[in-house]
């Protein structure tokens, strides 16, 4: 356990500088975006009302009030999220491959530590999850600030206010910020399983190299099929035959099966098959 935590700490530190840069970009872009979107709206309103002498009510009717969703769907808000997600997606691979292909092959050191090698896998997995949750926490902190910026620039008459939790119901956001604990576990559980499967696929490649690419693909497809078996059963074969809760429980079971087998295979590979 202690060595696992040390490894987590180590893995987090290794990416931390990059992580801070991503956080900086997100904060900067979203804050600037909040100002920019609000200002542009107000400029437009002022132009219409004072130059084109359009009555205020007509402007609001025609252009709509400014709601926070305008900010959310702007590039300022979305692009950093895309950037962060893309970087993390790449890092899911890089977190392993850097140990083999980076300067000074660090994988030698990692595999020669007097710890169960599966801890390396867990540590990398934890680091990735930590980074994901960190981004989400950041977003949850940023949204009230951005709403505040909007409110300070746009007068109440021009706003279509959304309550805080409503923001999380915006189509895209639902996926990032689930409302209930169950949803949270579901979405991030799926994320965790996905990353584990990718990790194990990477280890298959690292153990068997060219042959491993093939094995990894087969393994990935199998995991996908097993995981989505209950859901697809419902959709394709027996629509409405099962209660949603039954599907949910079955999904839980297949999820655990896929996760445990990913870990089991990874453990076996790290112990007996890995190649440096």
């Amino acid at each position: 356990m202690k060595s696992y935590l040390k490894l987590v700490n180590f893995e987090v530190n290794r990416f931390f500088k990059m992580y801070l840069i991503l956080i900086g970009i997100t904060i900067l872009s979203q804050i600037i975006g909040s100002f920019a979107v609000s200002k542009r709206y107000m400029n437009e309103a002022n132009r219409m009302i004072y130059e084109n002498l359009m009555p205020k009510s007509q402007f609001i009717e025609q252009f709509g009030g400014l709601s926070f969703s305008k900010i959310v769907f702007s590039g300022w808000f979305m692009l950093p999220i895309v950037l962060c997600s893309a970087t993390l997606m790449i890092y899911v691979f890089f977190i392993w491959y850097r140990d083999w292909f980076g300067k000074n092959t660090f994988i030698y050191r990692l595999l020669m530590l007097p710890v169960e090698r599966i801890n390396i896998y867990f540590a990398k997995l934890t680091a990735i999850m930590f980074f994901v949750l960190g981004f989400i926490a950041l977003q949850i902190l940023l949204i009230p600030i951005e709403m505040h910026i909007l409110k300070s620039i746009v007068p109440a008459d021009f706003r279509t206010d959304l309550p805080f939790h409503e923001i999380f119901n915006l189509s895209l956001m639902v996926w990032l910020y689930p409302n209930t604990i169950i949803e949270f576990i579901l979405i991030y559980g799926i994320g965790l399983i996905f990353v584990s499967v990718v990790f194990t696929a990477i280890l298959l490649e690292r153990s068997y190299r060219l042959k491993g690419v093939f094995l990894a693909s087969v393994y990935g497809i199998l995991s996908f099929i097993v995981f989505f078996a209950p859901a697809s059963l419902d959709i394709f074969f027996a629509r409405g035959y099962f209660y949603p809760i039954e599907i949910f429980v079955m999904e839980l079971v297949t999820g655990v099966i896929v996760l445990v087998s990913a870990i089991w295979i990874a453990n076996h590979l790290l112990k007996y098959k890995i190649k440096v």
Binding site: N104, F106, P114
Partner: peptide, 29 residues
Amino acid sequence: RKESFEKITFIPDAITMLPQMKIVDAFTF
């Protein structure tokens, strides 16, 4: 097994510490 790595060690022909580490960081590690 894992305990063996306290008993035997391997020094490859190239260093296996991260390049950005100082020697003292490597010691801490």
